[in-house]
Simulated scan of single mutants.
Amino acid sequence: MDTTEAINNLSVCGLDCSRCADYENGEIRNLSAKLSDLLKGYERLAKMKAENTPNFKGYPEFVSILNHFAKCTCSGCKSENIQCPLDCHAKTCRKERNINFCFECDEFPCADQFEGKLRERWIQRNNKMKEIGVENYYIEQGKLPRY
C-alpha cells in the first residue's frame, strides 16, 4: 500500500470514502451491480414466493434500493463529484488551505467543522491519523465496520 491510495480514498475529515455506499468504485456499488444483474428476471418468482413468504411483497422496493446502490457515482470528498450528505466545511476548506486532512491545518480543530458527537469523532479520527500516520490509519479503518 502506498500513501497515495490512502490519501485518495480517505476524506478530509478522516472517513473512508472508498467504503461508502455511494462511492462510484466501492465494493458496495460493485457487489450491488453484480447482485442486480444476477437477479434479473426474478420479479415473477418473487411474486409467487410472496404468497407464502410475506417478505417478498417488498421485493420491488428491495430492487429499487439495490439499483440505487448499483448506480452510485460519488467520486469522494476530494473530487469535484461529491455526493456526501454530511454538511462538511472541510470539503471546501482543504482547497483553500491546500491540505489533505484536517489535522494538517494550523487551525485544527476549527470551530466550523461539525457539532456534538460528530465533532468528537472528527477530532478523534484526525488525532489518530496524526498519531499513527495516514497509511496505518487507512489500514486500521479497513478492518472496522463502515457504518
Rank of each mutant, 00 (worst) to 15 (best):
M1N: 10
D2V: 03
D2N: 15
T3H: 09
T4F: 05
E5C: 08
A6Q: 00
I7Q: 08
N9S: 09
S11H: 06
S11W: 04
C13L: 02
D16Q: 05
S18W: 03
A21Y: 07
E24A: 11
N25C: 09
N25Q: 11
N25P: 02
G26R: 01
R29T: 08
R29E: 12
K34P: 01
S36Y: 02
L38F: 06
K40H: 08
G41N: 01
E43F: 00
L45T: 14
L45E: 13
K47Q: 15
K49C: 07
A50T: 02
E51T: 13
N52I: 10
T53I: 13
T53Q: 12
N55G: 14
F56S: 00
K57V: 11
G58D: 13
G58S: 14
P60V: 03
E61K: 14
F62N: 11
V63Y: 02
S64Q: 11
I65R: 15
I65W: 07
L66V: 03
N67D: 09
F69Q: 10
F69L: 14
A70D: 00
A70V: 02
K71R: 12
K71D: 09
K71V: 02
T73C: 05
S75L: 07
S75G: 10
S75D: 05
S75Y: 03
G76P: 01
K78H: 12
K78W: 05
E80R: 15
Q83K: 15
C84R: 08
D87P: 04
H89N: 14
H89P: 05
A90T: 04
A90N: 11
K91E: 10
T92R: 11
C93S: 05
C93N: 03
C93M: 07
R94D: 04
K95L: 13
R97S: 11
N98I: 06
F101A: 01
F103H: 10
F103R: 00
D106E: 10
D106Q: 09
E107Q: 08
F108Y: 07
F108R: 01
P109T: 06
A111N: 06
D112G: 04
D112P: 02
D112W: 03
F114Q: 07
F114R: 08
G116W: 04
G116P: 04
K117G: 08
L118D: 10
L118Y: 06
R119D: 05
R119E: 09
E120N: 12
R121W: 03
W122P: 03
W122D: 07
W122M: 13
R125D: 06
R125C: 00
N127V: 04
K130W: 03
G133M: 01
G133S: 04
V134A: 06
E135F: 07
Y137V: 00
Y137C: 01
E140I: 01
G142Q: 13
G142H: 11
G142C: 12
K143C: 02
P145Y: 09
P145M: 13
R146N: 13
